[in-house]
Structures are given as C-alpha cells and as structure tokens.
Design a protein around this nucleic acid. Structure first.
Lengths: 120, 120
DNA sequence: CTGCATCCGCAACGATACTG
DNA sequence: CAGTATCGTTGCGGATGCAG
C-alpha cells in the first residue's frame, strides 16, 4: 500500500503510513544499510573493501544500498578517475548521526545474542 | 547465499555472514518489527489494535512479523478462548530490552526527519 | 466478528557473467 | 576496480476463504 501522495498530518509519527518518517525508518532499519553505515564509521572505504566487510552482500545490493543512502544524504561518493578506477564512500554528518542509534542496535545484538532461545 | 551450516568463528560479529548475530539483526532491523515492538511497548495489544497502529500493514505481514518475533522469544502471545476470540500480544523481557535500541532509532528518525534533503 | 491460512501476481533479492 | 546486465529465486502484498 503506497500512500505517498497523501499528506502526513503529524510529520513526526513513524506509525503513520503517510509520514516521511516511515520512509526514513525503512531506509535505516534494514540489514545492509545498518551494516554499510557501520562499516563506513571506521573511515572512508572503497567499494571492494565494503564488499569484503559486509560478507555475503552481492554487488548489486551493495550498489543499490549505497546509492539509496547517497540519495538521502547519508553517504558521500567520491570518484577518482585513476587507473585503476577508485571510488571512495564516506559518511556525511547526517550519516554519522544516524549511525549512533544504529550502533546501539548492532552492539545490542552482539551483546545479547546468547539470550535468544534459538542460539546457544 | 545461505551459509547457515557454516559455523561462525566469532559469535559476536554482525559483519560475518555465518554469525547468528546477522539473523538477529535482520530480525530487528526491518520496518514492521521495529514498529510492532514499539507499539507493544505501550502495553499488551490485540491483533486488531496493532493493525490499526501500524498503518498500512497487511494482516498477513503482521501475522508473519508477530510469529517471527514470538519464535525468537521477543513477543508473547496469549489466547483467550472467549467469544469473540481475543488474542493479546505482549513483550517478553528480551523484547523489552531489544526495544531500547529500536526506540532510539525511531525517535532519532522522528527528530531528524527535517535534516533529510528530500524532506522539508 | 477476529484471527489466520492459502493462492497468486509482482516486485525485490541474490548469484553469476560481463563491460567501462 | 567498480560497477551493470541478466536471470532465477525468494518474499511481499492483496484477495479470498475458513475456523473459532
């Protein structure tokens, strides 16, 4: 159900389907975005480095994720027309800020993994 | 790529494809899970109430999300064999804890929505 | 009436091969 | 090296139907 056209009454309620917040939550609250932003927290990285860090990601999904983050102002993309070609991704100030709650989530998972019934 | 069979070397690295943490991150870091857990933070809720709160969710996705959360010990499901039937969902202690970082994420989005280039 | 299982069309995902 | 093209598969999302 896409109600993008409808205007959001309260622009600060993620539970509203029409609220822009919903799109932003969707952007941040997914596996590859959360991991990509986390990886970039350690400094600017090249495409290949990110691909190695986010084990199991396909080039297509990585490109798609990075482009989406770039379009929304969370990630900056620098192209160096060298040989071989070099492309570096880095966090924008907004991306750095968004990383704070995401880092909480990542570390919470790592620290509480043992509490889940289907994991030792 | 499903490398579930492979054993995870470091059981605390979300960046490892084979790490259980990856599955947990995937479970929590998605739109409907984040919203459902947030809604349940306000107290036990019935299926219909949750459906009304998570605007735009289909009954199927809501069921699927709640079941998945229940299977992983984040949500508790109580069935009252009344007429009409009543089913109440509530958070487990683990679910309440998981909600902390998710709440950070939700509130961060609501508070920083104006900073995104494609939103006011 | 509430909750949920089934079926199906379609979009998103994922792996591989290939191009600038 | 950094992606794009292509294709098979998976999963979402809506409609329908059924049980309690």
């Amino acid at each position: 159900m896409h109600i993008e056209s409808t205007v959001c009454e309260d622009p600060k309620d993620v539970y509203s389907a029409a609220c822009p917040c919903r799109n932003m939550l969707d952007l941040l609250a997914n596996k590859w975005s959360a991991l990509a932003l986390g990886a970039l927290e350690e400094g600017p990285q090249r495409f290949g480095a990110l691909r190695a860090r986010l084990q199991g990601v396909s080039p297509k999904m990585l490109t798609q994720t990075l482009r989406r983050l770039e379009d929304h102002g969370l990630v900056h993309r620098d192209v160096y027309p060298e040989v071989p070609l070099r492309v570096e991704y880095s966090l924008t100030p907004l991306g750095r800020d968004a990383n704070v709650p995401l880092a909480h989530l990542r570390t919470w998972v790592e620290r509480n993994i043992a509490r889940f019934p289907d994991q030792g």
